[in-house]
Amino acid sequence: MRDLRPAGWVIRTYRDRPSLQPDQLYLEAIGRPVWEPEHRAAGLRQISSKTRRLVLERDGHACRRCGHAAGEAYADDPSAHVRLTVGHVNPHRSGSAAEAEDLITECARCNETVKHLTGVQMTKEQVWDRVTELRRRDKQELLDWMKADGRAMSQMERVWAMYRQLPAVLREDLKRDLDSLLGS
């Protein structure tokens, strides 16, 4: 599946479509015929399952660009749910490898946006202007994130990311259990 998606194939899982079972897939769109030599994705790096798992766990099962966790609905489009991908920090044409340090967890939306960036990317000065508008405490927290090259997640955010990894049926069970525990 991972090799078909870059070729334009749209394959949904239970994380994208809650009506699917964990072992079901939904083919939404057929992409280029990858079985024909001229359409093979030459040079695609294979990312091992172990490396993919390591990157997702390292990044807290959340997009490092926008912060959304797997399965969450996007605020601007509640019908669309976050599907996480593992993207390359530098594009393949720049020589990026398929090693964990060259990979980053991204939602499909951010991954596509980064692939197609044009001149609208913010400049250092534009970002700096926004940094200077922050309160001193927030500037310090931002600097800490920059130094760590990541945002530390709270215990609740880590549990939320774990919860979002569960199949829809188990998420419903867990929600009922917590609701019962709190007596709501």
Rank of each mutant, 00 (worst) to 15 (best):
L44P: 01
A69W: 02
Q46M: 12
R15P: 05
R15G: 06
V10P: 04
L181I: 02
D77Y: 06
E28A: 12
A62H: 07
S180D: 14
M156K: 15
C107I: 03
E157Q: 15
A152L: 12
L25H: 06
A29L: 10
S154H: 04
Y163H: 09
A97S: 15
A7H: 00
C107G: 02
L174D: 01
V10Q: 11
W35I: 01
A161W: 00
A29N: 06
V82W: 03
L170P: 01
Q21K: 15
L103K: 02
P33V: 02
R15F: 14
P22M: 04
G95D: 06
G67Q: 05
E57L: 13
I47S: 02
L182T: 07
V131G: 02
D138Y: 06
D102T: 05
S180I: 11
E101N: 13
A41W: 12
L25C: 04
W35S: 07
L103A: 03
P18L: 13
P91M: 07
P6C: 03
D129V: 11
L134K: 08
T105C: 04
E141C: 09
A29M: 06
R58F: 00
S96C: 02
G8P: 06
T113H: 10
E101G: 13
Y74G: 03
D16A: 04
E101P: 08
T13V: 01
D102H: 15
P33E: 03
G183P: 10
R171S: 04
V114A: 10
